[in-house]
């Protein structure tokens, strides 16, 4: 078995005073193979962004901090690296794009210069070579008329075009991992389809592994091979995309899938999860979903469920469904 490209182990992120911290990412572990695609899905505040920011050590500090765990990239722990080595990793090995490209772009610099700068950080090219490479990248991400647009400023681009520029900057140095945090949330559905197709294309052509963060189960189903479901700062389920959508094992995943309206929906009434999402860190004991869970038993209030295996590559953190699955397989095994 080959070692994964990225392996997050028992990651915790806290905010607030050390004496009385709020743990917004709580013991999160998962991994990504080289060239793979993993989706992290969860509702707002579930800790998706803090998890992904941790990889590049971009958690705002203070007030936040990574309080535990390891992040192994190619076997080396990024959290143990001296801070001054992180800029070498960013861009060259791991690149990141965000929901709002405008906030990551410099408004007074041309698109071409900004992409050129990203190249310059890690590659030794003269200015003519650089311009050629920028044009190549603009073409790769589907900007029409690259030669005519290379000297334009960000505000002259639409939201979808800006996200393409961000992707061009991100892949400028052929990183091995691209982290995309809600990259299409601010875009219209037809533009979103373009950007998702572009990310797939980048992955296929360049072999870049993609960590896609989204609150939208549709996007995750469409773009990822593996799925990590987060709830209130914790991983509640993880598996290959088909297991998650066909045989969800955690009551939260099941309820979420039942509650979303679908294009082929013929139901009169949607399934409704009672209550609302707890803030990450607000549940310190037992299962964070128990207050809304139709299956809860007494244990759920007391003991935090670990991730139980539901299949070769499928895990979920639920006492009740794990026991039921175990009973089922025991019954099948007995003559």
């Amino acid at each position: 078995m080959t070692a994964p490209l990225l392996r997050i182990e028992n990651l915790s992120v806290e905010f607030g005073p050390r004496a009385n911290p709020i743990r917004v990412v709580d013991d999160v572990s998962f991994e990504i193979e080289a060239g793979g695609s993993v989706g992290v899905v969860g509702e707002s505040g579930s800790g998706k962004s803090m998890t992904s920011l941790s990889i590049l050590r971009l958690v705002p500090e203070p007030p936040g901090r990574i309080s535990g765990g390891r992040i192994l990239f190619d076997g080396a722990d990024l959290l143990a690296l001296p801070r001054n080595q992180m800029p070498d990793i960013r861009g060259r090995d791991v690149a990141m794009i965000f929901q709002e490209p405008m906030s990551s772009l410099n408004p007074v610099m041309t698109i071409g210069d900004q992409i050129g700068e990203a190249i310059l950080l890690h590659q030794d090219l003269n200015s003519a070579q650089r311009r050629k490479r920028v044009l190549e990248l603009l073409r790769l991400v589907g900007i029409p008329d690259p030669a005519g647009r290379i000297d334009a400023y960000p505000h002259q681009f639409s939201g979808g075009m800006r996200q393409r520029v961000m992707i061009a900057m991100a892949v400028a140095c052929n990183p091995r991992l691209l982290i995309a945090d809600e990259p299409t949330t601010a875009l219209d559905v037809t533009i979103q389809a373009q950007v998702l197709a572009l990310l797939k294309d980048v992955r296929q052509r360049l072999g870049t592994a993609i960590l896609l963060i989204s609150h939208d189960l549709g996007i995750i189903a469409d773009s990822c091979e593996r799925v990590v479901v987060m709830y209130a700062g914790r991983v509640v389920e993880e598996g290959d995309v088909r297991s998650i959508f066909r045989n969800p094992a955690h009551p939260y995943t099941r309820a979420l899938l039942k509650s979303i309206p679908r294009l082929d929906d013929e139901r009169d009434r949607l399934y409704q999860i009672p209550g609302s999402v707890p803030l990450a860190g607000s549940v310190t004991q037992g299962c964070a979903f128990r207050a809304r869970c139709p299956l809860r038993v007494e244990t759920c209030a007391v003991d935090r469920p670990p991730l139980f295996a539901f299949g070769p590559s499928h895990k979920a953190a639920c006492w009740v469904t794990a026991e039921a699955a175990q009973a089922r397989s025991a019954a099948e095994a007995s003559p």
Partner: peptide, 25 residues
């Protein structure tokens, strides 16, 4: 038709024959 086909659906088995419109509004 394009708008409907662009909407991502929470179903990994849905054949992905998406109509991708060129350009922006």
């Amino acid at each position: 038709q394009a708008l409907l086909s662009a909407a991502p659906e929470p179903d990994p088995d849905r054949p992905s024959r998406r109509i991708i419109l060129q350009g922006d509004v």
